[in-house]
């Protein structure tokens, strides 16, 4: 109703062990605010909606332009980046929750370690270090470069992992992003040299079979990465590698 204030309902949690609770906030409206600038307002003046003094809400952010993924949280029920969540485009009261598929550190701050562990597990890099100069690598076909570039936009934000019904405390599914990264690095002409090694990491416990085709990931990815295409393509690659191993080992 009133354009003078913005209402927030924030799910808070004081420490990893304590129970979450909700707290409401009402802050003065300014044009063109995003969720981060609203949280900064709470930080400057930590009063809840009832006017009581409270601790400022904790959150994480870095780039403020949706490329680092640090500010990911659940905003009005959807996991997304707070820095690009414009207050004027959000229904009020704005509900903020941490992405609790990840361990909650405090308030909206989560521990995204599993994202980076996943990248290590699937060897999402191209080994080029040698004892001598290996020279320039082969060129990549332009058509391939174009789709590979899309995959390279992943910022490890965790939104796809949050939305996936098969990532939870009962499973060890690595999550959609890591599968797509295997496809990306396997597509690279130099990365291709270690293709099977990467693909094999998806054929272990918690690998690609954890995908149950709910396809939430592709709908929520802020970078529009064709995750389900990557998953299906890697399904084919793992199948091929499976037969290759059977017939050559």
């Amino acid at each position: 109703m009133s354009q003078q204030t913005i209402k927030f309902v924030v799910q808070r949690q004081d420490s990893p062990e304590t129970k979450p609770y909700t707290e409401e906030f009402e802050i003065p409206y300014r044009p063109n605010m995003n969720v981060i600038s609203a949280l900064m307002e709470v930080q400057r003046n930590p009063l809840n909606a009832k006017g009581g003094k409270t601790t400022p809400v904790c959150w994480e952010s870095n780039c403020l332009e949706e490329v680092c993924g640090a500010c990911s949280m659940v905003i009005n029920g959807k996991p997304r980046q707070a820095c690009t969540a414009l207050v004027d485009k959000l229904e009020q009261p704005i509900r903020l929750e941490p992405m609790n598929t990840f361990p909650v550190v405090r308030d909206l701050v989560i521990d995204r370690q599993r994202m980076f562990d996943g990248l290590k597990k699937v060897k999402a890099w191209i080994p080029i270090d040698g004892t001598y100069d290996l020279g320039p690598g082969p060129r990549m076909a332009e058509a391939k470069r174009q789709w590979a570039y899309e995959l390279s936009k992943c910022m490890t934000c965790g939104v796809c992992v949050e939305a996936c019904p098969n990532v939870n405390e009962k499973t060890d599914f690595i999550g959609p992003y890591a599968i797509s990264q295997v496809r990306l690095f396997n597509a690279h002409p130099t990365g291709e040299l270690n293709k099977d090694e990467r693909t094999a990491t998806l054929m272990e416990d918690g690998g690609i079979e954890g995908c149950g085709n709910s396809q939430n990931c592709v709908k929520v990815c802020p970078k529009g990465i064709p995750l389900t295409t990557s998953i299906a393509a890697m399904n084919m690659e793992t199948t091929k590698l499976m037969f290759k191993k059977w017939f050559t080992s």
Partner: peptide, 9 residues
């Protein structure tokens, strides 16, 4: 999908 036959959207 799971066997990589239908890949694209």
């Amino acid at each position: 999908v799971s066997w990589g036959i239908t890949v694209g959207p």
